[in-house]
């Protein structure tokens, strides 16, 4: 069966580190980085990229719309 793999790209400089995307992710992929961006916010990043399914839940709740979601099918 084909498996679905996803990935997100966060616009780091526009992310405000509100962490609303973290509970929205059912796969627990996202965490806040230890580093900060130019404005001093800890930005969201993929802590666990293997688990991402590209369900777009994080991008849909992101108040600043900084998350772009990619999804592809992988033949197992």
């Amino acid at each position: 069966m084909a498996k679905v793999k996803g990935a997100i790209v966060v616009d780091i400089e526009k992310c405000k580190g509100c962490s609303v995307c973290i509970p929205a992710c059912n796969q627990n992929v996202i965490l806040l980085a230890k580093e900060v961006n130019g404005k001093g916010y800890q930005y969201a990043y993929m802590e666990n990229p293997e688990a991402c399914t590209g369900c777009v839940n994080c991008a849909i709740v992101c108040p600043d719309g900084v998350i772009t979601v990619y999804r592809t099918k992988v033949e197992a």
Partner: peptide
């Protein structure tokens, strides 16, 4: 599969509206 292979313009499923 590497993340770089997933992050391609043709695989975009959601992005901020223009």
């Amino acid at each position: 599969m590497d993340i770089k292979d997933i992050i391609k313009p043709e695989n975009i499923v959601y992005q901020k509206t223009k």
